[in-house]
């Protein structure tokens, strides 16, 4: 029996990569999935954190897709290496801090390393020419193939007929006439193909697959870099940007204010590493203070904390402040809306 060719498919959890993998699988190729965890992925976290999101299914879409396809899935932690992509993308950013083209190049490059280590033959992605303004254009398709080092071992089954034949086609591992020629922003061809394959209930991420396409999230990341005077981050930083209300009253510190119970529980895990406060005379949120506040700053932070408590209309609110394990109590007047400029909200 001839040896089955082997492909690894980049599985994001969305429809396109699911279809691309199935197209190749149907041609008798052994397919396994690979999914990269950058720390910015929309998957899981917010659902796990926020109570109001808990009614939504908490499934991990990449795992769900792999199960529908009946393929193995390798989830790879690229948090550290991915920093250079976000911090200094050679091809720049999209509308927000999303470095989509560099990101694609990086991920396909990691997949190329993976196929070499695991003795696989080629890489499959769900890219479609013209689908996304930055990373999926006719002129950027060859850039991804070239700069990732994947060259013609990169097959895009959904738009392959619009591109020169790749190695898997030339070798006869897949039949070119059974691949597709999708292009443009329309989702109709994908939806028709999904119906043909009997796929239902698939995820349709709106903007993209990660938080970096989100305007508010990008603003918070930009603020973090500016406040620290360096473009860098740790995993905890970028996780915390997904949670709570972020307020920066002064350049040297910001407040992360839990908006509900789920966020409080999440922020509690960070109490040891941050100065934190919460109202004691009234019900109110847990607040983490990030930065280097002095005593005057802490007083201001306590007044803001009081504003977000049930004592916002009270004359005084007692706020407990914990710093290096030592707690003190401050009695403060909640700050009024007039004293709180809009720019403080990040």
């Amino acid at each position: 029996m001839p040896v089955k060719p082997k492909a690894v498919a980049l599985i994001s959890g969305g429809l396109d990569s699911m279809l691309a993998a199935r197209v190749v699988q149907q041609q008798g190729v052994h397919v396994e999935g690979i999914n990269f965890f950058t720390g910015f992925c929309v998957e899981g976290h917010t659902h796990a954190i926020r109570k109001r999101d808990q009614a939504r299914p908490k499934r991990n879409n990449a795992l769900w897709v792999a199960e529908q396809l009946g393929i193995k899935l390798h989830i790879i932690d690229i948090i550290e290496e991915y920093k250079k992509v976000v911090i200094n993308p050679k091809h720049g950013y999209g509308a927000n801090l999303n470095p989509c083209l560099d990101c694609k190049i990086f991920m396909v490059g990691k997949a190329r390393e993976w196929i070499a280590e695991n003795d696989f033959d080629f890489i499959v992605t769900g890219e479609v020419i013209g689908q996304r303004p930055m990373s999926q254009r006719k002129d950027t398709m060859p850039v991804v193939a070239r700069e990732s080092g994947a060259e013609d071992r990169l097959l895009r089954p959904l738009c392959a007929k619009n591109l020169p034949p790749t190695l898997p086609e030339r070798e006869g591992w897949v039949q070119r006439d059974q691949l597709f020629d999708f292009s443009g922003r329309s989702r109709k061809p994908q939806m028709a193909l999904a119906e043909q394959f009997g796929f239902e209930d698939y995820a349709q991420p709106a903007g993209g697959c990660c938080f970096l396409t989100d305007r508010n999230y990008s603003a918070k990341l930009q603020d973090l870099w500016q406040a620290r005077g360096t473009r860098d981050y740790e995993l905890d930083d970028i996780m915390l940007l997904k949670v709570g209300r972020h307020i920066r009253p002064r350049p040297n510190f910001k407040m992360i204010i839990a908006r509900e119970e789920g966020e409080t529980r999440f922020l509690q895990g960070y109490r040891k590493s941050f100065i934190h406060m919460h109202p004691v005379s009234h019900r109110g949120p847990l607040v983490l203070i990030d930065g280097t506040p002095d005593a005057d700053d802490l007083l201001l932070a306590a007044r803001l904390t009081a504003r977000y408590s049930q004592g916002r209309d009270a004359e005084r609110v007692e706020v407990s402040v914990v710093r290096n394990g030592v707690s003190e109590s401050l009695s403060v007047a909640p700050i009024s809306s007039q004293e709180m400029p809009d720019e403080w909200h990040i």
Binding site: G44, H47, A48, Q54, K58, R59, N60, L63, W64, K72
Partner: peptide
């Protein structure tokens, strides 16, 4: 401690044998 693991860990086990 993440409630998401209730779905994810069994799903990962199923697909990976």
């Amino acid at each position: 401690t993440d409630p998401g693991t209730v779905h994810d860990i069994p799903a990962w086990c199923r697909i990976n044998g």
